[in-house]
Computed example of a mutant assay.
Amino acid sequence: MKRAFIIYMLFTLFFCKAQKYTETEILDQLDLAFNGKPSQYFPQKKSGEIQYNFFLDLEHGYFMTAGNRIHLYANDEGQWAVVFEKNGYQNRATRAEIELNYIGNCINYSKERYSDINYTSNTNYIVLIDGDEFTRIENKEGNDQETFEYIGEQIKEIKIHNQFVPFNPNYRDYEKVGIKIANFDNGKRLVGFGDLIRYYNEVNPSLLYASEDEIKMHIPKKLKKIMTIDKFHYDRTVLPSKQETYKMIAKILVSGDSSYWRPVLLFNNHWSTWESGNL
């Protein structure tokens, strides 16, 4: 009887315990997103449905990148998630926003419907400054060039992420932190919409960060955060499985040990390293 009980317990522990994920699985999922291919964790594709699996893109032509981070989550139940976070100015939508890309085996994928087509993706957007606020603060004086995507010098505060914050119109302060204010057809050296987001990223980056609740909108609430990485080496030409950054990330997720983050390559994820928002 005792022998049978022991065998039963061993059977239960072996088969009922959540299967542990591997570094290879994590790197495979990152490679799929890198190549824009949905994984087996996406819901079964239905007729007429389009699925998107996005990876962090610091050189998007329609998105003037400011800040970016990587969040790592895992638990003992076999669930893991990598969440890429970036913020900036969406120049085709006249909106400043946070973009969150989710990769893992427990993602609650975003679902939307436009023009009778269903879209499923691993991405969520959080508005920082909406179009109405940009219309309010946009310069109203001067020629067409001076009034397009420039902030009026009389503006005192701007609503960002549901709070009003002071606006600094002094272009010299922006240039001190590496932001070049356009001077062509901009005699007053007015601050541009994208310049504003990059400036806050330099002087008050937490203002632009997603909250923990916002980040967890598409992953299980019980997932434990292992760490947040805000400085890393980024290369959009090499598969993640071949890069130091993501190999370390996979090891951290499997072990739950953030001390494995010991990069050798210099970090280059700052917006000044990449050309974005230029289309």
Rank of each mutant, 00 (worst) to 15 (best):
M1P: 00
K2W: 02
A4H: 01
A4F: 00
F11M: 01
F14W: 07
F15A: 01
C16V: 09
K17Q: 12
K20H: 12
K20D: 12
Y21P: 04
T22N: 07
T24D: 14
T24P: 02
L27Y: 05
Q29S: 12
L32E: 11
A33C: 09
F34V: 08
G36L: 01
K37L: 14
K37D: 04
Q40R: 15
F42P: 13
Q51I: 06
Q51S: 10
L56V: 07
Y62V: 12
M64Y: 10
A66G: 13
G67F: 03
N68H: 03
L72F: 06
L72P: 12
A74S: 13
N75F: 01
Q79M: 11
A81K: 10
V82G: 07
K86Y: 05
Y89R: 05
Y89H: 10
A93P: 03
A93S: 14
T94H: 06
I98D: 00
E99A: 14
E99W: 08
E99P: 00
E99L: 14
L100D: 03
L100I: 04
I103H: 08
C106G: 08
I107D: 09
Y109W: 04
R113C: 08
S115G: 05
I117Q: 13
N118E: 12
T120E: 05
N122I: 06
N122D: 10
V127Q: 10
G131F: 04
G131H: 13
G131N: 15
E133C: 04
I137N: 00
E138K: 01
N139K: 01
N143Y: 04
T147H: 05
F148C: 01
F148S: 10
F148T: 13
Y150K: 11
I151C: 03
I151R: 00
Q154W: 07
I155D: 01
I155G: 01
E157H: 05
E157V: 00
H161N: 15
P166F: 10
P169T: 05
Y171G: 01
R172E: 13
D173F: 05
D173E: 14
G187F: 07
L190R: 12
L196G: 00
Y199K: 02
Y199M: 04
Y199S: 03
E202Q: 13
E202Y: 03
V203P: 00
S206L: 07
L207K: 05
S211W: 02
S211Y: 03
E212V: 08
E214F: 08
K216R: 13
K216L: 03
I219T: 00
K221R: 11
K222H: 13
K222N: 15
K224F: 08
K225P: 09
K225R: 15
D235A: 02
V238M: 11
V238R: 07
P240I: 07
Y246D: 03
M248T: 06
S258R: 13
S259M: 09
Y260S: 03
P263Y: 06
V264Q: 14
H270M: 04
W271R: 07
T273H: 14
E275T: 14
E275L: 12
L279Y: 14
